[in-house]
Amino acid sequence: MSRVVAAWRRIPAWLVDLLAVGVALLDALLYRSGDDPLTLGLCLVACAGLLVRRRFPLVAFVLTLPAALVATIIAAPIIALFTLAARSRRYWLLLTCGALFAAAEAIGWPLTSQFTSDQDHTAISFVYRLAAAAAPILLGQLVQTTADLRSRLTEIEASRQHERELYAQTVLARERNQLAREMHDVVSHQVSLIAAQAGALQVTASDPAAKEAASAIRSLASTTLEELRSMVMLLRAAGTRSPGLAPQPTVSDLEDLVTASGLAVTMEGSLPPDLGSARERAVYRTVQEALTNVRKHAPGSAVTVRQWSDERSVAVAIVNGCPTSTPLRLPSSHLGLLGLHERAELLGGTLVYGAEGDGFRVELHLPRMTK
């Protein structure tokens, strides 16, 4: 069953809509109650209305009611009613639409002849049609509930993943603290003894070569102690607050980043405050990496950082000109822009970069968060 559902979801939406229109047309041609132009026109309008059922489900259903009144068609109203039930949470609207469908099918046209000829048959037909309308409504609500459950399961899995990450960070912090204590209590103590013994040997030895060796050992031990103290402080700081939980830079920090860069940077435009933390970090890291590359490869060049946004996306572009001094020969892993490209793809955006005139351009585009 799951394979069938998965295969059905892979069918393009436009093909499903055309299939629905085809089924409705076949039903209208087989079971229409007359050949007059009005009946044929209303049936065609009902079938064509199914093309807008995804975006305007209520409009699509209303367009099928006149055809249901003048002709004995079932497919078009049932499909429209199912789509409305799958997208609407207003139960009173679904009940009203179901009753209208049943009344249109049971009463028929002209209205006066149905009310005066056989009212019992009309009432019984209305009950049957009302039961028939309940099927697409219940099925549509089932589809909607399934989608809600799937979304809820996704949220629960994301929450569990976050909890696992927090637990891993807690364990990592505990291990860092333990390692820091071991280094302080054991390794530092042993190195201190080495330094003390070397100092004593330097004082008591009569051989100049032995004195020089002892002095070198003592100097190396002292340097090692200083490095150990730095490592212990770093481990304790990391263990106290995991880097994953530390405050992350945002778009509001770009001014400080530009000021600290020491480059001639011109800021243009701005970004809205509701980007979300992941997008703000992506914008910040992109500007940071671009400015770093300018300092390394195009020192002295003028830089322009332009920010803009619209209803669907936000963007930032960093453009530098020709360098005015010799570029610095610094080691590079060539992975900075690649990492930014991967970060942009994870957020559903794009990162493009390349030469532009005498300089270089880096441009990031990210989709806006959906409400």
Rank of each mutant, 00 (worst) to 15 (best):
S261Y: 04
E105N: 14
L220W: 07
L234D: 13
R164F: 09
L38M: 04
T145C: 01
F61P: 07
A85V: 11
A213R: 08
Q190N: 09
I124V: 15
V186H: 14
V4E: 02
L65F: 09
S313H: 10
F115E: 10
A173H: 02
F101S: 02
R368K: 05
F82N: 10
L94N: 12
A134L: 15
H121S: 14
S332E: 12
L153H: 05
A298E: 00
A210K: 05
A67W: 03
T64M: 10
R329I: 10
L330C: 00
S333K: 10
L51Q: 06
R150T: 15
Q144D: 13
M267D: 10
R87N: 06
F115Q: 08
S325I: 12
A344L: 09
W14T: 05
I74Y: 13
S270R: 04
A344K: 01
W109M: 05
S151I: 06
R10C: 02
Q288V: 08
S270A: 09
K371F: 13
T292K: 09
Y128K: 09
V4K: 01
A20Q: 06
I73V: 15
L340P: 06
A355P: 10
L291W: 02
L364H: 00
P66Q: 01
L337W: 09
G41K: 07
A28H: 04
V16I: 09
I217S: 08
Y167S: 10
L42R: 11
R312L: 14
H162F: 00
H184W: 14
I194H: 01
E163C: 08
L271P: 01
